[in-house]
Design a protein around this nucleic acid. Structure first.
Lengths: 361, 361
DNA sequence: TTGAAAGCGCTACCAG
DNA sequence: CTGGTAGCGCTTTCAA
C-alpha cells in the first residue's frame, strides 16, 4: 500500500476550514486545504510538510507520522498548478493524436497513459482530427501548460507546430512513424516498408494490377508513405502504376464499398486492393460479395490496422498489425528516459503482415 | 513476417543545451517568454499586456497593436499553470474513462475534446482500466490540477472517488450511464432498458433460453445493469433464468469463441446469446460457424456497441448503437452550462437496437 | 486608460 | 533535520 497522502477512508472528513487562525497563517479558502493549513495544524513549518511529501526520509519518522495524519484528516489534495509553477517540472505530458474515433491510436494512448501515470505523469490529450491547423492550435494550447514532455503522432506537422515543439525545451517524441525528419525522438514504424510489403504480398499471390483505397481525410503522411512504397514496388517489378482512389469522407465500410464501385467502373482490371484501414477493407469485401465477385479468387484485399473483426469475417482479412502496445510502451519509456536526461532515440517498431483468406489464392 | 526492431540513436537531432543542472542555479527554461518580457519590450507594464490579452477593449487600440506585435515577435506562449494559480479557473477538464482500447469511449472522448477545445478547455485524460482502485488514484491525481470540471464514465465509483468528486467544488458530469445516484449531472443511457430491449427482441424472434456472455474485466456496473434488465424480462415472461458467463480476459473475439464452447457444453439449450460487446459477439459467431451451427436459425446473437464491422460480417450482427457523439456533445454542453452557473442536469440519451441477420428468423 | 502591489500554493535554497 | 525566505508567471484589486 502506498504510503503518503494517498489513503483516506473517507468515512469522516473533518472540516478543513477549522484551522488555528493565527496571524501569520494564510487566509483560508473554502473547500481547499493548503500545505500551510496542514502545517499549522501540526505545528511545523509549511516546507517541512512539503518535504515530508516529497522526501519522506528527510523528516523525523515520528513527525512524519503526525504530518501524514494531518494530511489525511484534512483530506489534503495537492495543488499541482502551484507545484508546477514553483518547481521545474509540471508533470504533464501532452499527447497529440490525429484521431481517436477510428481507434487507430486508442490502444497507443491507453498504454501510454497507464505507464506514465505510474510515474505520476498526467496525460493531457488533444486530437487534431487530421487537420494541420487544428494541430497547430492544439500544440500551442498544450505547450501553454508547460508539459514535461510531448508525444505526438507522426513526423509531418504544421510548420509552426514543429517550430513550437522544437523550441519549447521539453522532450518531444513522435509516434507511429519514423520516416523523415525528427524533432527529438521517435517511436514508430517504417510506413514505406509496410506499403512495399503489402504490394509484394499481393504480387507473390499472383495479383498484378494494384490499387490503394482510402479516406482522403485520413490520407495523412503515413498513408501516403505506404502508397509510395506500393508504387515503388510496382515500378521496380515493371508493372502498371498504382491506382489511387480517395474520398473526403472518413474511413468507414460505406466509403470502402462506394470506392470499390468507382474502382470497378474505372479500372476493371485491378485485381489487388490495399485499403488504408480495415474499416474500409470491410466495406470493399462487402461490396465484392454483393456484386458476386470472389475473394480471393477474383480479387485480393489487404487492410491496415488488424482490427479484431478481421479474423471473424468471411473471408478473413489479410492485414497489417502495428505493434500498438509496443509503441505506447516504448514512447513512455523514451519520454521517461529523455526527462531523466538521456539521449534522444529513434526506435523502429515491429509490425506484422497477417496473411489470411482474403489474399490466399 | 516480422520486421526490423532495431534501435538507432538518431544523429540528426539537435542536442539541447547542457542539461547539467548545477545545484544552486534554477534550471533555465529555454525559449520561454513571459508577459513581463513582452511588457518591457513594448515599454508598458506587465498587467497592461495581460489585459490586452484578456480584455482587449480596455486597451488603447494603438497600444494593443504594438503589444500584439511584440507578442508575436517574441513568440509568446502563455503559462497557464500560472494563470490557473492566480485566477479562479484552471481551464482543465478532467476526463476519466474505464477503457480506451476497445474504443467503447473513444468516440465520446473524441467529440468531447473537440467541443471543449473550442471553448479553450483542455482535456486531461485518465483511464481506470475498469479498476476502482485505479479510478480512485486517477480522480485524486486529476483533482490535484484543480480542474474546471470533471467528466467521468459511469455512476458507480470507488467510494472515495465519489466523495472527492462530490466535495471538490467543480461540476461533475457522469457519462454513459444515467441509472442510480448522481453526484451532480449525468448524460447517459438507461442500461437496464437496453438489456430489456435485447431480451425482448430475442424473445420476439422466438428464442426462449437466453445467455449473457462477456469479459469479467469489463463486467462493469453498466454491463450488470443490462444483464439485470434481461433477467427481469425473462422472469416476467416466466422463462428460465438468464445464464451468465464471464471470464477475466478482455473483450475479444477469442474470448467470445471460448465462452461459446463453455456455454454449449454446459447449457446446450440456450438459443439466444447476448454479448457484452460486439467484439465478443464476433467470436461467438465465428465459433458457431465453426461448429456448424446456423445463425439465426439455430441460435440468435446480439452484440453491444455497433462497431463498423457488424454490418460487414456474415451474418450481419444485431447490435445496440449508443449515441456516442450525442453523449460527447451533450456532456460538453452540460459542462459548459454548469461552469456558467446553470443547474445540474440529468440527460437520458437515445440508443437504437439495430436488427440484422444474426437474429432475423 | 494604465500601473503598483498583493498574492495564488508550492518548491528550492540557504542558514540554523 | 528544520524553518525562513524568495520567487515561479500570472490575475486582480485598487490607485493614479
Amino acid at each position: 500500500m502506498a504510503r503518503n497522502s494517498d489513503e483516506a477512508p473517507s468515512a469522516t472528513v473533518p472540516d478543513p476550514d477549522e484551522v488555528g487562525a493565527r496571524p501569520g497563517a494564510r487566509p483560508e479558502r473554502r473547500g481547499t486545504t493548503t500545505l500551510a493549513m496542514v502545517a499549522s495544524r501540526v505545528g511545523v513549518s509549511l516546507n517541512t510538510v512539503s518535504r515530508a511529501l516529497r522526501a519522506p526520509h528527510t523528516v523525523r519518522p515520528e513527525l512524519k507520522r503526525r504530518i501524514d495524519q494531518a494530511l489525511q484528516d484534512l483530506n489534503y489534495v495537492p495543488n499541482r498548478l502551484a507545484g508546477g509553477l514553483a518547481g521545474t517540472r509540471s508533470d504533464i505530458v501532452g499527447v497529440v493524436i490525429t484521431s481517436l474515433f477510428h481507434s487507430e491510436f486508442a490502444a497507443v494512448v491507453d498504454t501510454l497513459q497507464a505507464q506514465l501515470l505510474d510515474r505520476n505523469l498526467q496525460v493531457m490529450l488533444g486530437n487534431s482530427r487530421y487537420d494541420p491547423e487544428e494541430e497547430r492550435r492544439l500544440v500551442r494550447s498544450i505547450l501553454s501548460w508547460r508539459p514535461a514532455a510531448v508525444a505526438i503522432v507522426g513526423c509531418d506537422h504544421h510548420p509552426e507546430a514543429t517550430e513550437l515543439l522544437a523550441s519549447c525545451g521539453a522532450p518531444i517524441v513522435e509516434m507511429w512513424d519514423v520516416g523523415g525528419d525528427i524533432i527529438d525522438s521517435a517511436v514508430g514504424m517504417d510506413h514505406e516498408a509496410i506499403g512495399r510489403a503489402q504490394a509484394e504480398h499481393l504480387l507473390s499471390r499472383g495479383y498484378r494490377r494494384l490499387a490503394f483505397l482510402g479516406s482522403l481525410r485520413e490520407a495523412d503522411a503515413r498513408a501516403r508513405k505506404r502508397a509510395s512504397g506500393m508504387a515503388a514496388t510496382l515500378a521496380e517489378a515493371g508493372l502498371p502504376p498504382l491506382v489511387r482512389m480517395t474520398r473526403p469522407e472518413g474511413g468507414h465500410p460505406d466509403l470502402g464499398e462506394s470506392l470499390l464501385h468507382e474502382l470497378l467502373a474505372a479500372h476493371r482490371d485491378v485485381d489487388g486492393i490495399v485499403c488504408n484501414s480495415d474499416a474500409v477493407a470491410f466495406g470493399v469485401l462487402r461490396g465484392l460479395r454483393r456484386v458476386g465477385q470472389n475473394v480471393p479468387g477474383d480479387r485480393g484485399v489487404v487492410g491496415f490496422g488488424d482490427v479484431d473483426a478481421g479474423s471473424c469475417i468471411s473471408p478473413t482479412l489479410t492485414s497489417v498489425r502495428p505493434a500498438r502496445h509496443a509503441i505506447g510502451r516504448l514512447t513512455a519509456e523514451t519520454i521517461l528516459a529523455r526527462i531523466a536526461g538521456e539521449e534522444p532515440r529513434r526506435i523502429t517498431v515491429d509490425w506484422e503482415l497477417l496473411e489470411r483468406e482474403s489474399t490466399a489464392r
